[in-house]
Design a protein around this nucleic acid. Structure first.
Lengths: 207, 207, 207, 207
DNA sequence: GATGAATGAGGGTTCATTCAT
DNA sequence: AATGAATGAACCCTCATTCAT
């Protein structure tokens, strides 16, 4: 009865996500999006002021959903190892499920300041979540470690997106590998730090 | 000397690199490039069949130079630690020096298959070099490790390019951090493997 | 009282007059008019078949009112001088009061035949009124004189509309000047004619 | 050989004058103009930044030519009567020759400030020329008289442009009529002034 | 080889008008 | 009668590419 408005907006976002993802921002015509959404070209402009704004909305919906799902997943585990694995699995699975949308990697309208700013901000928020996990586990240099972890996962993502033969099996192996490798590095650091702390307390006692 | 063909080609590549890097592929007009190169618009087409081909040439020159310099730098060191540091330093410094060309991150003409293929291939070659370093040091899973390392470095690159206040001091610290973190993980793995190998040889002896 | 059909029609006309006058026909959107009238876009089309017809209605109301007021004013005077001054004062005052609606000068939809025809007709009727005044005073060439008078007044109108600093003081001076100048010319002509008539009658008598 | 550039610019101006004049600014498509000029749509934009700028150029050429011709014609006469007639004849003939371009009356893009400013300025310059003629003949209130004269002539112009049956015969009659009527008014004023001056000098003498 | 005037396909956006509710 | 979401034709302008000189 009502809710039609919401429906159409969703239709547009879906169509835009699909086409921006498959063909890229510049290669996608508003008329294509409208056609795929089953509406008229002009209707797009009832919901979005410009192609750029539509792209921003698409990106926002995608990224917010990404972070939301990540937070959800993290709630169910307590151990650092678990959390790191959840993060990795989320990152890789998310992109594996969307692997046909290769052009999303280049979130293009290169010069749209709002989109640039949003993406910058998204990365920060993502990083903050990972960093928090590391802080809770007493990992040293949690910011840089978080960045490194995300970097490792992003490289896997690139493989997923640009290697058409990337299998689900491979997905799991790579995910575990990255999580494992990183955990090892962290554990190492934590150990060292504990040793250090231990030494200090011993030294303190021996005085 | 100055009227040589080669000169003009170089002028065009320089101008295109500058503008593609500053503004992005789609935002840059052939006429802008010609203007900056100090030549006529039509002349560009004496050297390149299309804007895409020019972009490919620009990218190629940039990437080949990147790999070349990396190889050069790697020749001067033997230790794994040294090599990893050289790789990291090269990666981060290269992009720090070109940090104003933020749009190079999106090597855009999204649909040019040749460029896509070239980039895919470039990554492989880059990865192969890193992988070789790891293989020589007996690191397990050298491919995946190589990918992880490059991923970590690529994240630093993103920070460099999109954080305008990124300092040279920070550059060195981050570089050393990443190299160190990765080396630790690798060393760990090598150790484990050596232990394993040691056990096996012992077991073999004891028979 | 307020929900009456007539009310809404008036609201639309008022809003359209305002916006056509301030911004011009082509620059004004139907949605703007609806918004200013406090009604929905579609409602405009319950009262007017098209934007052109609305413009015609606006113009008609404006012009009819102009002529009506002129007729009213003329009823109160008998002397040619008075009548000419009333005409002049009406012309200039009317536009002075509406001087912020500069775009009314270009009653645009250039290609609407109905509007063109109406405007042509309006001018004729206006002219007829002035002409009648002149005929009653025995002015020679009353039609052309009427045209000239209106032309003079229209030039004042242009000054009023496009000179933002045009003051009320100036308005009165210019009005009197134009009326005076024209009256003089007419009187002159009337005199000459009277002389001519006098001569003729004298000649007649003397025969 | 060369001069081709100039040629094309002229072709565009001619085509634009024709179409803007026949159909109006908003009703004329750039593609129509290009077609009529025998060139491609894009070529128009090599010579003019926008449709508005083209309209300004068309107007400018037209108005400058108008003033130029007026100055030329005025050089050949010395008497006030002659000058006034030349002005009138020029005004009416000019528009009679262009009477099919009815839409030029509404020099439309209503909101283009540059065009508005240019037109304002054109009127001033035109008025200045007429005013100068009156000053030289010692006419009182030369500015307002000039305005009135132009107003009278402009009304004739309107008749010319919107009365399709306006004949050349009528043109001459109306022109002479307006010039005569105005001259009479002026002469009158000059006489009065001379009388005044005469009286004053007499009074001076008698003292 | 070098030029730059000319081309014209192409797409984002606007907005008068319609019509289901 | 009133609404306002939806429509889609229309048009300005851009810019990669061509080609005559």
């Amino acid at each position: 009865m009502s809710g039609t408005t919401g429906d159409k907006l969703e239709l547009i976002l879906d169509a835009a996500y699909e086409l921006f993802g498959l063909d890229g921002f510049y290669e996608t015509k508003i008329s294509d999006i409208a056609h795929r959404a089953g509406i008229a070209k002009g209707t797009v402009y009832l919901y979005f002021k410009s192609k750029e704004e539509l792209c921003l909305a698409v990106t926002r919906r995608d990224c917010e959903y990404f972070l939301e799902k990540l937070q959800d997943a993290l709630q169910h585990c307590r151990q650092l190892a678990d959390k790191l694995h959840v993060i990795a699995a989320h990152h890789t699975t998310y992109h594996f499920e969307r692997r046909k949308y290769t052009k999303l990697v280049f979130r293009a309208p290169n010069n749209d300041p709002e989109l640039m700013e949003y993406m910058r901000n998204f990365i920060f928020r993502y990083m903050d979540i990972v960093q928090q996990v590391l802080i809770e586990a007493n990992v040293q240099q949690p910011r840089w470690c978080a960045e490194s972890y995300i970097g490792m996962l992003d490289r896997v993502k690139m493989d997923i997106m640009f290697n058409p033969e990337f299998t689900e099996q491979e997905l799991h192996e790579r995910t575990s590998f990255v999580a494992g490798l990183f955990l090892e590095g962290c554990t190492q650091q934590i150990n060292k730090q504990d040793q250090l702390a231990g030494q200090r307390s011993q030294e303190g006692e021996s005085e």
